[in-house]
């Protein structure tokens, strides 16, 4: 079974982002960039499926600027077999990415696409569901467990009230939640090996996809800051504050 995994290059989750002074976005120059953490989980799951003999090939794809090649090399070091960059400097919104991934899926014909449930930069939580819709495939979002059978996947999903399990026919799209697995660290020998793996570069034009953004960002501002409050000595003083100052209990 061939698995396609998509990865996004995002500002590292440890970075506290700053809004640009001109209000056009957030500062990304000279900021540490990493693979979106949910995509790391997606890739780890694919690699485990290959190690278990279920998957035969893992193709990893990223859409965006040239620097996404670094993210793809990391993915190859984690265990993907080959990589595809859909290269563009244009701003990509989830619908456009879903269209690019659809075009790549039609070329690669994977049985399963695994991707992160959301990217930690735009927090949209859309691309997987959109890709499934465009391909006419079923979807299982927010996965915490994936079991593959002959022609279907049985997926346990993290939902508001607890856990829900759905069965979806293959081919399908699965998006990952935090508890699916714990991604491995990349080792040096694997980084070296990854340099020799194939990395193909495509463009939206070559794939016949119009990526024109549908949303225009009018402005980006910092949210109102919470003022740090006071430290109180003990539980008794706390109850007094909550009852008499804040009046919340």
């Amino acid at each position: 079974m061939k698995i396609l995994v998509s990865v996004k290059r995002v500002v590292d989750f440890n970075v506290k982002v700053r809004v640009k002074a001109d209000g056009t976005g957030v500062e990304t120059a000279n900021v540490k960039m990493s693979m979106n953490p949910f995509d790391e989980i997606a890739l780890e799951e694919a690699v485990r499926l290959k190690e278990a003999g279920v998957a035969t090939e893992i193709v990893v794809v990223s859409c965006g600027v040239q620097a996404c090649q670094e993210t793809l090399r990391t993915a190859l070091a984690i265990g993907a077999d080959r990589a595809i960059l859909v290269n563009t400097d244009a701003e990509l919104q989830p619908l456009a990415v879903a269209k690019l991934l659809k075009a790549v899926s039609e070329r690669e014909k994977p049985q399963l696409v695994i991707m992160g449930k959301q990217a930690i930069d735009d927090d949209a939580n859309q691309t997987g569901q959109m890709l499934a819709a465009l391909l006419g495939w079923p979807q299982a979002t927010f996965a915490s467990k994936i079991r593959l059978e002959a022609d279907r996947a049985v997926v346990t999903r993290e939902v508001d009230g607890g856990l829900e399990t759905d069965a979806i026919k293959l081919p399908a799209v699965v998006t990952t939640d935090l508890r699916l697995n714990e991604p491995r660290y990349v080792t040096l020998p694997n980084i070296m090996k990854a340099k020799k793996k194939a990395l193909e570069v495509l463009t939206p034009d070559a794939l016949g996809v119009d990526v024109t953004p549908r949303l225009t960002t009018l402005k980006v501002v910092e949210p109102a800051k919470r003022k740090a409050g006071v430290k109180v000595a003990d539980a008794k003083a706390l109850v007094d504050k909550l009852r008499n100052d804040a009046k919340v209990i």
């Binding site: 957030v26 930690i120 949303l215 009018l218």
Partner: peptide, 19 residues
């Protein structure tokens, strides 16, 4: 036009849709 949080709520973006 709508306001939505991005980057874990560390920024608020106002976006305008042309759909």
């Amino acid at each position: 036009s709508f306001v939505r949080p991005i980057y874990a709520g560390n920024a608020l973006a106002t976006v305008k849709s042309r759909d």
